[in-house]
Design a protein around this nucleic acid. Structure first.
Length: 645
DNA sequence: GGGAGAGACGTTTTT
DNA sequence: CGTCTCTCCC
């Protein structure tokens, strides 16, 4: 295939593929064929003899990276199989490892699981304004302290932030661990400090997908990698939904100002969605006031109007049953389960739908994160497994000695850490010394008592392993019938199925990977249930968004915000809904009109509402009364009238 | 250091 | 409504 095959030279896609400008920005609305245009651009580069290794295609999420990689490799152009599609985090880690940046500063790339953040938070909270403030600080640190688009990354602005960074590094170095997110500030400062670093001129062509998802630090990393590269960024400020990690729509908007002379191209023809959905999406997003470049998607008549329904149920239970019935009916009618995408912003809505479909033997998969480690006993057994493999896993030990204490025994642990540091020994060695009476450290009684239990349990597991191997240990740690570890058991057994004699450390590595980096299947065979965030970049012939109520979509803005900040939160929620409805794909030729179903319910138990952080409009004897999302109204006359479900 | 009781909050993502 | 977090007190 030649890169320009069947491409109209007047089309924007041609322009994107052909532009020889060293800086190109593409604003591409949902479903406008940006992957297609990027692919053609890469094909052109390869045909012109550009080294595949000098082309960098980078995105923010693994789903998008693997998608891009698959598309690029599938082009059939010579050299395409050598192309890389990477997440910015994996790229960062690779560059840091290659340059021994981490080793030189005493760092070990042992990532923390989500649940392992608890003791870190407890250990640092006192000195840094409490756990809540601390979490915000971690987010800002991961953005290299550039909380706003106009902030310069890498420069700590407040003395508090500086003290926090010092303590955080201290904790991570002592515990021989890393935050996933810290690779970004690390890489930024490495590249910034080393203008002669090979990586700054390694790439000739950089393509960035979903650019609006990058925060200022991540944008800075891209800029520092671009010394010798042509850069093409693709994204959509209307799909910017990651303000919680300090990515703002201004990022892609202001890129032209900092890249003078850049080409500015736009993709507006919505090739994916039915025309009615395009009209609804346009009406919806027009309600965003803070939108300097008002644009609209152009519908494609050939896509047909689609099948759009807005359904209301009396109660949340009815909604769950209703959605389940709809899906069963579709599957019974011959629609492949993999064509169906269910979006629910909270587990309380998504999980019951998942369970109900599961009970009806409909293939279904839930994409809510790290679900295997939700239960505390799952976390505990997993920590034991880590310690069994490596007694010097300081994070796992820290977690276990703090377990079942509200403050994770942070005061005793502080003394222990001081002692271990002073003696230049590890916490494990220090605890052994104290437990065996060879050393005394005041106020560590509770800690050492816990340690004795942990050590005995590890001895037991060690013996068990010697007797019955990894499989026996798995059976002991994740026993059948224990709901909390059900998923861990299933996952472990599937890993050991063909290789029961695996070394424990290999088993642990594979188990960790399976939990934190689940495989993204290329053939979708299940009904998919996920958050709206996760759905970015995906499309499906049938898209169902459940829970379209005020307080959830949009979520209740946080308290204490200024009017402008509140507006910004609502506008981001509107963009989130815009992303959601534009997932639906029509293929009239294949008999798939493109089905979009939006559901809500008028009432749910108060406990459910409060449990999910949904502010009810009114409460009556334990029933929370909900009202329909404003977004339904904002889609205007383009949307069908809501009907009972 | 740790327990009791009052008060806040609940999501989304990255190897 | 639960769970987590914070403060106060022993």
């Amino acid at each position: 295939m030649a890169w320009s095959d069947a491409l109209d030279p007047q089309s924007p896609a041609f322009g994107i593929a052909a532009s020889a400008n060293a800086r190109v920005r593409v604003i591409a609305g949902p479903g406008t064929g940006k992957s297609f245009a990027m692919k053609r651009r890469v094909a052109r580069l390869l045909e012109e003899g550009v080294e595949p290794a000098s082309i960098l295609a980078v995105t923010f999420t693994r789903v998008a990276a693997e998608d891009l990689h698959r598309e690029l490799v599938g082009m059939g152009v010579p050299g395409c199989e050598a192309l890389n599609g990477v997440t910015i985090h994996s790229l960062a880690l690779r560059i840091l490892m290659r340059n021994h940046v981490l080793g030189a500063t005493g760092r070990i790339p042992r990532p923390l699981n989500d649940f392992e953040l608890k003791p870190l938070e407890a250990d640092l909270a006192d000195a840094h304004g409490g756990v809540r403030e601390l979490r915000k600080k971690i987010k800002a640190f991961e953005a290299a302290w550039a909380r706003l688009q106009q902030d310069e990354p890498g420069y700590v602005q407040h003395p508090d932030d500086l003290a926090f960074e010092r303590d955080l590094y201290g904790w991570l170095i002592f515990h021989r661990a890393m935050l996933i997110g810290e690779v970004i500030p690390q890489l930024y400062s490495y590249l910034h400090a080393n203008p002669l670093a090979q990586e700054r001129s390694e790439f000739r062509h950089i393509l960035v997908d979903e650019f609006q998802d990058l925060n200022r630090a991540e944008q800075g990393v891209i800029a520092l990698l671009s010394d010798a590269a042509d850069v093409c960024i693709v994204g959509d400020d209307d799909q910017s939904i990651y303000s919680f990690k300090h990515a703002h729509p201004e990022g892609i908007r202001s890129w032209l100002a900092t890249n003078a002379g850049a080409d500015d191209l736009t993709l507006d023809d919505c090739r994916r969605c039915p025309t009615q959905v395009v009209a609804m999406a346009n009406a919806l997003i027009a309600s965003n006031v803070n939108r300097p470049i008002p644009r609209a998607l152009t519908p494609l008549a050939a896509n047909g109007g689609g099948d759009v329904r807005i359904l209301q149920y009396a109660t949340l239970d009815d909604e769950v049953v209703g959605v389940t019935n709809l899906i069963s009916g579709m599957v019974a009618g011959g629609i492949p389960p993999g064509d169906i995408l269910v979006l629910a912003q909270r587990g309380v809505i998504g999980t019951p739908i998942y369970e109900a479909l599961h009970a009806r033997n409909i293939p279904v998969r839930s994409y809510y994160a790290e679900a295997e480690l939700n239960a505390q006993n799952a976390q505990e057994r997993f920590a034991y497994l880590k310690l069994l493999v490596d007694r010097e896993d300081r994070v796992a030990l820290r977690w276990l000695v703090g377990l079942n204490s509200a403050n994770w025994r942070c005061r005793g642990y502080r003394r222990l850490r001081g002692y271990a540091d002073g003696q230049a020994i590890s916490p494990w060695q220090a605890l052994c010394a104290i437990a065996d009476g060879q050393a005394q450290v005041a106020h560590t009684g509770a800690l050492v008592e816990r340690f004795r239990v942990i050590r005995a349990e590890l001895d037991r597991l060690g013996t068990l392993h010697a007797d019955v191997g990894v499989l026996g240990v798995v059976d002991d740690l994740f026993p059948e019938g224990d709901d909390g570890v059900r998923d861990l058991r299933a996952l472990s057994l599937s890993l050991l199925e063909n290789d029961a004699g695996m070394m424990p450390e290999d088993f642990l590595t594979r188990l960790s990977d399976a939990i934190t980096k689940p495989e993204i299947p290329s053939e979708i065979e299940d009904v998919r249930i996920m958050s709206l965030h996760k759905s970015k970049g995906l499309s499906a012939p049938v898209t169902i968004i459940a829970g379209c109520i005020e307080g959830l979509l949009p979520k209740q803005p946080r308290d204490g915000l200024s009017a402008a900040e509140t507006l910004a939160e609502i506008e981001e929620q509107r963009r989130l809904f815009y992303v959601g409805i534009s997932r639906v794909k029509s293929s009239p030729a294949a008999g798939k009109p493109g089905t979009l179903i939006l559901t809500n319910s008028r009432m749910m138990p108060l406990a459910t509402a409060m449990g999910a952080g949904i502010a009810p409009a009114q409460v009556n004897y334990g029933d929370a009364h909900m009202i329909t999302s404003r977004f339904i109204r904002e889609m205007g006359a383009a949307a069908p009238a809501p009907v009972p479900g």
